[in-house]
Design a protein around this nucleic acid. Structure first.
Lengths: 228, 228
DNA sequence: AGCGTAGGTGTACGTTGTACACCTCGTCAA
DNA sequence: TTGACGAGGTGTACAACGTACACCTACGCT
């Protein structure tokens, strides 16, 4: 006689979400289907729907779980710039722990608690740092996705290979893009042996550019043009 | 007797792509399946595969088609800032003509001719304007998605409604997000009667912030820290 | 003792991308 | 004139997907 059913620990929303995150971490986002996830949990696909409303809801929950890892310190010593920088870099760390999270965040439109919580934290730091609500608003927009700790991959080296299979259009001719080539050659010269761009540098470069620019506006008491 | 088969104008890659763009424009991206598209063209689904390699290739082609609408003037009068601004706003116009394009561009990783062409044009304007290849590189990264004329929708008003159906987690309590509320109230006060944010203003605000900051670096002869 | 309900099961349906074999022409060499 | 060839459209088929719906089962309550 086999062992008794062992009375599995029952499913729950957190358990489902955690399993989904783990599955995506290991096998990639494409492997996250209701069926695979159910298999992983030793359960039938439809059982998941007792804990998540739909696949969309599952993805929202996964993003929420990852962003729940972000920790934000309160404003310290009145240095809003360092505080915001720290919050954003904490988000970056969380997102980098889960390679699929970037893409997932981009496609989500729903504002779940952890998402709102992070936005609230950053906004609060700006207000505490002397930003007017008006300027804080525009600052959030200007930061955009960088709030979540990532910037778009403008030059994705790995994409070309992946596309080789089914592409119909001809491969582009480098001679048509002299400026890109010039820039890319200089980048390689500066970082010999490196593959692709230094994403961390690019991220902080742009982040600091924005924070500096915003600080100038704050000091100058900038405000929206009336009527806009 | 019905009209003779009318010897339909044969399919071709451009015709398939144009039909896909039109279909997405009218019925949304979700309606772009190989079957629907084939229906629209009066053809059987598999016929499309003679002209596009896969659905991925189709989407790449759609993005390429839209970005092909972008026109970029050469540098005029040495004002790189106005020229770049113009190129970016031209891309924005193209993307806004096709509501689905934003999301589609974000998910594409392949660099098709029109995509590369636009990147090349902007890079060339920077170089012609006195940017070092080094700084031009970082400038492109800093601009990020704004190159394509859009910025992430941080506060998407319509998303909440759409999610109401299958959401499992409870609706967020506004009392937990005082800073967001403060900012949002001020925004509403400044634009009474407006629904949501003024995306055009937010876009140019952030764009000009970046262009100004980059111009300062250019004037100062900024260059990458060695070793990074 | 019995009933309601939370939670897991089983089956089924419609839709998706696309592999593969086929057919039907128009073009061109012999 | 013929006959082969290849480009391009057809038909069928399959595996995978999300999820609606009816069902069962077992626990906590009164």
């Amino acid at each position: 006689m086999p062992a008794p059913p062992a009375s599995r620990t029952p499913l729950s929303r957190p358990r489902v979400l955690a399993a989904a995150v783990a599955l995506a971490d290991v096998d990639g986002m494409a492997a996250v289907s209701m069926r695979h996830l159910a298999d992983r949990l030793g359960v039938v696909p439809m059982a998941l729907y007792k804990h998540v409303g739909s696949k969309e809801d599952l993805l929202d929950g996964m993003v929420d779980t990852v962003l729940g890892e972000v920790v934000t310190a309160g404003p310290r010593g009145g240095d809003w710039r360092a505080a915001v920088r720290g919050a954003v870099l904490s988000a970056r760390a969380a997102v980098q722990r889960h390679p699929w999270a970037r893409r997932a965040i981009e496609t989500r439109t729903v504002r779940t608690p952890a998402v709102l919580g992070h936005m609230e934290a950053v906004t609060a730091l700006l207000l505490a740092g002397g930003f007017s609500p008006d300027l804080a608003h525009h600052a959030m927009h200007a930061l955009g996705n960088r709030i979540w700790g990532f910037s778009p991959e403008l030059f994705d080296e790995t994409a070309e290979d992946r596309a080789a299979g089914t592409r119909t259009s001809p491969a582009p001719d480098p001679a048509d893009y002299p400026s890109i080539i010039a820039v890319s050659l200089e980048a390689r010269r500066r970082r010999p042996g490196a593959a692709g761009c230094d994403e961390d540098f690019e991220f902080t470069f742009a982040l600091d550019l924005l924070l500096d620019a915003l600080d100038r506006l704050r000091r100058d008491g900038w405000e929206s043009p009336t009527g806009a």
